[in-house]
Design a protein around this nucleic acid. Structure first.
Length: 557
RNA sequence: UGCCCGAUGGUGUAACGGUAGCACGAUUGACUCUGAAUCAAUUAGUCUAGGUUCAAAUCCUAGUCGGGCAACCA
């Protein structure tokens, strides 16, 4: 992954330093998702960071499922996460792990903590627990069970495991400091009873460790050198360190960075799940979703996503990245790689009055002006064509470089044509535009050297084929949809026009495209032949991103 | 309110005591058989107040603003 070659940020600085001082000779990172939802572009940032660092410094990166809460987790998510990380282009080799595979070891460590009087079984109910914990600016009170005999705690903990108790009846807590200004240090729960089937461990356990207890131990077992996580875990770091120290085991270093926020979308698993559950989108892989699966379905490439992750950088500043940067990354790649084709999304018939009926001309179209090796193709031209409705105006302003009565434009790779008139139906809709062509301008250039400002795309009516095209737009119409007032719903900011499906007229070479291909429809944008909905010879296209449109801006004011 | 973290153009990010740079966006122009791309230019920034220093975006203090933390979630 050469895009990582010279990346630098405060975390890489630390890694570089640790290598230089000899603190570590090999770097080991990990990407530790909880399988309780689909991965999104924010996870891609973390994936690129962790796998990227490992690649850059010649170490390795583990994929580890942090599956400590069976009631929220599911095999579906495990499978999807594996697929997504792999699709993004990363390889964990043999290093696929599950926190649940370490449960026996964690249980032993919990026992060790009990025996060292560093943990105790607490009988407080959840309500009492809350009450005893206190609030941030007031210390908590010690649980009456805090000084339970070590033997009794040990016995109870074993019986918790044996399944003798109901959910919530007992918990195992670390004995730290109920007066700590850091709430997480006030005797946190480290094991709770959950009689639930686990997607990976099955029914082997009915007690499960909490994140705070488990995570550092997982890192320690795997000899992770740098445990990279997001900012909200900063206040957990003292706890992370406390467990590793109390158990005197290998001690990785936790480093926090700011998670990604993207404009015009939401990134919280809760909100994403809500969109899926409420049927506002068509599943986790809806092309409007910021999930990896959604972006893939939309037509984004792993390369573009990685380029984006490299471009946004890594800091501790919690900002919001403009989605325009993501769009830039995919345009930048597709401009270099995507074949050009002509498609008319909103057709208007154009009749060339002086072109012989029945005559067909085979014109040559360049497949990709950015890539000569992409070659060219033949495009059929005939008397009746379709052009884009937006490319004709009855009374065009001066700056409109397209068709209008009396105006001359170029038909891409075809001829110069001059508009001679148009027809309307009873409702006043323009139904047809008429023109004459200059036979001397075949290919698009006039021998007399005259210039035309506008070039428009077209398809031959007799040769055009129909294709379903979905025009996607941003899911929300405000920059920060997650920032809602109390009592308001983020869904009120949904963009009602985030999806529009039309039937386009396309040149035959478009209909023949392989599912999974990406094309540029000239002057319109980049489109993806959906790998799920496309049929052989009947592709269904998703608009990945439109081309930049200077005219739309000018017109829009 | 207690603790932790942060603050550089519109947005993201460099500068590691010594010329505030890059990218995206926006604007303008050149070029153009894609109003794309490309090229050129313009726009616009160190939160505030003190202090240390020959010199501060950078170090110190205070304040302001923003974020995080009171799940038996991660």
């Amino acid at each position: 992954m050469s895009e990582n070659a010279e990346l630098s940020d405060f975390i890489r600085d630390i890694v570089r330093e640790d290598l230089k001082t000899g603190k570590h000779s090999e770097i080991v990172t990990r990407f530790p998702p909880e399988p309780n939802g689909y991965l999104h572009i924010g996870h891609a940032k973390s994936i690129c960071l962790n796998f990227g660092i490992a690649a850059q410094f010649g170490g390795r990166c583990h994929l580890r499922f942090d599956d400590t809460n069976p009631v929220k987790e599911d095999q579906e998510y495990i499978d999807a996460i594996i697929e997504d990380v792999r699709w993004l282009g990363f390889n964990w080799g043999e290093h696929l792990y599950y926190a649940s595979d370490y449960f026996e070891q964690m249980y032993e460590w919990a026992l060790a903590l009990i025996r060292k009087d560093n943990a105790y079984v607490c009988t407080l109910s959840p309500e009492e627990f809350k009450d005893y914990r206190g609030v941030p600016n007031r210390p908590g009170r010690e649980s009456p069970w805090r000084n339970r005999a070590v033997e009794e705690s040990e016995d109870l903990f074993k019986r918790m495991r044996a399944g003798e108790f109901a959910d919530g009846q007992y918990v195992l807590r670390a004995k730290i400091d109920m007066a700590s200004p850091n709430l997480h240090m006030r005797d946190p729960v480290i094991y709770r009873i959950k009689h639930a089937s686990h997607p990976h461990a099955g029914d082997k356990w009915c007690i499960y460790p909490t994140y705070d207890f488990a995570h550092g131990l997982e890192d320690s077992i795997e000899k992770i050198t740098h445990s990279i996580c997001t900012l909200e875990f900063e206040v957990h770091r003292p706890l992370y360190d406390w467990f590793l120290k109390a158990l005197a085991v290998y001690h990785p270093r936790q480093i926090e960075f700011a998670r990604l926020n993207l404009s015009y979308t939401v990134m919280s698993k809760r909100m994403l799940l809500e969109l899926v559950r409420d049927g506002i989108v068509n599943g986790w892989d809806d092309p409007r979703m910021p999930t990896i699966a959604g972006l893939r379905r939309r037509g984004y490439t792993p390369e573009a996503i990685r380029a984006f992750c490299a471009a946004i950088g890594v800091t501790k500043y919690n900002g919001i990245t403009d989605i325009a940067l993501l769009e830039h990354c995919i345009r930048d790649e597709l401009n270099r790689t995507a074949a050009r084709r002509m498609a008319v999304l909103n057709p208007l018939k154009l009749v060339i009055e002086n072109y012989p009926e029945g005559q067909v001309d085979e014109l040559e179209g360049i497949n990709n002006p950015e890539d000569p090796s992409a070659g060219s193709r033949k495009i059929s031209f005939s008397r009746e064509l379709y052009i884009e409705r937006d490319d004709f105006m009855e009374e065009p302003p001066k700056k409109f470089f397209r068709m209008g009565p009396g105006r001359e434009v170029r038909l891409r790779y075809g001829y110069l044509v001059q508009c001679t008139g148009f027809e309307k139906d009873a409702q006043g809709n323009i139904t047809e535009v008429r023109c004459t062509y200059d036979p001397e301008t075949r290919g698009g250039n006039a021998p007399d050297g005259r210039k035309v400002k506008g070039t428009i795309h077209w398809v031959s009516a007799a040769h055009a084929q129909r294709c379903r095209v979905r025009l996607y737009d941003r899911l929300f119409n405000v920059e920060r949809p997650a920032d809602v007032e109390q009592g308001e719903d983020f869904k009120q900011h949904l963009n009602p026009d985030s999806i529009g499906e039309i039937e386009a007229l396309v040149e035959p070479a478009v209909a023949a495209v392989e599912p999974g291909s990406r094309l540029q429809f000239e002057r319109l944008g980049y489109f993806y032949a959906d790998h799920i909905d496309s049929q052989p010879d009947a592709p269904v296209f998703n608009r990945i991103v439109p081309l930049k449109d200077a005219w739309a801006k000018k017109r829009g004011g």
